[in-house]
Design a protein around this nucleic acid. Structure first.
Lengths: 340, 340
DNA sequence: CTGAAAGCGCTTACAG
DNA sequence: CTGAAAGCGCTTACAG
């Protein structure tokens, strides 16, 4: 019985019934007499028989497999989203296959997303370059013929798919406002690789927040970098070295916790005391945030909830667009500014 | 053309050839005249046709899907393993589906591992209770009829599957030896939920290391906890409060970086200065290790490499057992002990 | 309650 | 170089 596994025919033959009957007891559907049911179940157990999900998918058109596309699992942020989605999917009898971003533009036919007949696909979108946007939209349109698609993350408002998206402009506005409330006036924003025409993006909210507080928008306090600690460190380092110390920001809003961690290192290297000399606000509330020094103030973006909601939305068939939940997590890295 | 997608029959009909021919150009195998090939390809492109991987799997017995079972993706350690495996799998045209541990004992037939006819399965094993061991071995034996299995992680030496395992006893011996070299004599080990009869386990190496240095094995310096920061914090806290300060350990070897982070917090709460009063050695070299204060000395367990190697071993068909690579990463959290 | 038969969308010998 | 036919392991009307 090495690497084989029996088929429904083996079971039927040994139980002395038709494969139709075996199929019925397998799925618990259709009427089967208690006696034959018991008989068939015994044979199934004896053979340790498991029906082939792929044969079942072939005939029933349901694969009970969902696809998910994430930027990179190495950022725990995405691992949380995936975990939330996976747990919810299992609850409804589904499995989630994870695809990397690259599979959206992959040439290998054996792996193409479209080849897999999944019951649905969740795509986690982050800000893209204009060309990236075009390409994504194009690909989604193709995939749409094969499966239902749901979008999550920071999804531009002009995408027309069922969506759960973070209200980033609002989050940024409130972030600025929070720091202003702590006495900060020189507030930097570090992060964001590309611009986008969506009016929900971070930049917009950052600027709005400054305007609402009647504070000047200073180009020197705006740095672009991708979402890694190294990039964050380099970005803040460059900002500091380009400015006389008197003009250094007293607070920085980081794209995410990784960038915030990098900023912490850059600030320390410059001899700044945290949080007295510089407040740092992260985003995503990674597991390590409480263990940094100072413990990082961040934003809980409820990633597991987002993942679970995405699965529910995908399975529900609804077309709506919703906001994802979020909340400040106050710790030590943002402090009242009392002069330097 | 909404949510449908064409089949090989549609393509064949429109191109005026048999499905056999379409199949041949699809797979690039078998001889097809340049002319008909071009004709068929045009139709395929026009329809944006993608053959169903599930129908292909049905007939060819190859699904180009690998399964992977990991304890929990929320620990970046496992996310790294998965990423390494996934990248390698894609290189050879495979996809990896991730299953949680719970699926090893799942009752839902629709999701059962055995239902999915995967080309192979990688199971990442951590130390288990004796009963957990029994159950796992049992389950693996069942699954084995359906697919090839490879084990990775901390795999007891009496498991007989192709394996890549960390030489934990050796790692622990060298860890103790490293700390002894820094002048430490009171070295604690915090971690490990269960005992196991495998002689490669951490405890064994820890004890050996102490013996080699002619240092006493002190039960009070041995704490059990699971691999989370909270557990690590609680464990060290309890150890410290159970001992007169004069007997406090001067160094602790943590199960992993999460536990190490928890230990840092516990030590700080007790007023210990790090690393002067207490050296802490982590394991797994998580991305945040360099950003802790003091930067955490840890062990790079080359997780992505492990993941990639696991895929290669799975696909190779070889039966060997190998050691996984590892290496110390020296940072600031382990320092020479100069008295307290 | 039970079974014979068609069909899901492909691949693969086997003929020609 | 090309195609008719069988078969992969199931599910699902349709009869009985």
């Amino acid at each position: 019985m090495s690497t084989s596994g029996s088929t429904i025919y083996d079971i039927a033959a040994e139980a002395g019934v038709s494969i139709t009957t075996v199929s019925r007891v397998l799925r618990g559907s259709g009427a089967v007499s208690a006696a034959t049911k018991k008989k068939v179940e015994a044979v199934i157990a004896r053979h340790n028989y498991h029906p082939s999900a792929i044969a079942q998918g072939m005939t029933s058109k349901k694969t009970y497999t969902l696809g998910m596309i994430l930027p990179k699992l190495l950022n725990p942020n995405y691992a949380m989203i995936f975990t939330g989605a996976n747990d919810e999917a299992r609850r409804s009898g589904h499995l989630i296959s994870l695809f990397p971003w690259s599979s959206l533009s992959d040439e290998r036919p054996a792996l193409s997303l479209a080849n897999r007949r999944m019951d649905g696909l969740i795509v986690c979108v982050e800000y893209l370059s204009p060309e990236g946007n075009e390409r994504l939209l194009e690909t989604l349109k193709e995939l749409r013929q094969y499966m239902r698609i749901v979008l999550i993350g920071c999804v531009p408002s002009y995408y027309s798919y069922p969506t759960i998206s973070y209200p980033m402009a609002e989050i940024m506005r409130k972030s600025v406002s929070y720091l202003v409330g702590l006495g900060h006036e020189k507030i930097a924003f570090i992060g964001g690789t590309e611009e986008d025409r969506d009016e929900q993006r971070r930049d917009v909210g950052y600027t709005q927040g400054l305007q609402e507080a009647h504070l000047p928008c200073t180009a020197s306090y705006r740095a672009f970098c991708k979402g890694t600690a190294e990039a964050g460190e380099a970005a803040l380092e460059e900002m500091l070295s380009s400015l006389l110390p008197a003009y250094w920001p007293t607070a920085v809003i980081a794209l995410n916790d990784l960038v915030a961690m990098g900023c912490m290192n850059a600030a320390r290297k410059r001899g700044l005391k945290l949080p007295e000399d510089l407040s740092i606000l992260g985003c995503d509330n990674l597991f390590c945030a409480p263990y940094l020094s100072p413990a990082l103030t961040s934003i809980d973006t409820r990633q597991q909830e987002l993942g679970a909601d995405a699965v529910r939305l995908l399975l529900s068939g609804e077309e709506k667009r919703m906001d994802a939940g979020w909340e400040f997590v106050y710790r030590e890295s943002c402090a009242r500014y009392a002069g330097r």
